[in-house]
Amino acid sequence: MNDVAAAAVPTPAQEMTTLLSGLGASRDRDDFGRLFAFYAPRVKAYLMRQGTEATVAEELAQEAMLMVWQKAALFDASKASASTWIFTIVRNLRIDALRRHRPAFDPTDPMFIPDAPPSPDYESEYAEMQDRIRAAMSELPGEQATVIRLAFFEDKPHSEIAAQLALPLGTVKSRLRLALRRMASVLEIAT
């Protein structure tokens, strides 16, 4: 089983989301310890998979977890699962560590156009939506799963991914587009 398909298998991640939701208010160090035990070794593995050297990956994983503690009050389970939220923290930390810049939108920008108001049970819908996205991931055709994996793990422009797979650039782009469309389409059915 490839790792894109494996990622679709349910994990203790839901439990972690519940723990993280409470952490901002509780400041409970035992809960944080449990989050650390689950995520830190995975964050380190993820960074190493992206080519980060082990000792640097360990330091970044520690920084990421410290940030999880500091920002816990900002975590909103109606907008992301713990894994998704921590993924974005790790992504941004790594980009900073590489001294690169990744512009991000500012929701307090006067020009920001907000989402349509969410339905009252959006939070439970998001949990359901996650399951659907994961199910869609597991059903991606192998060739789409491969480019998705490379897009997340290789940190390379599409042109280099194309060269690595000996495929035309257009083919790589269209596989990525099809994969994202397929996963996003499960949400359209839901609403």
Binding site: V4, S81, A82, T88, I133, R134, R149, F152
Partner: peptide, 12 residues
Amino acid sequence: VAETVGGALLDA
């Protein structure tokens, strides 16, 4: 959705 994929890869 794409970040959810990143989160799922991190889990797995």
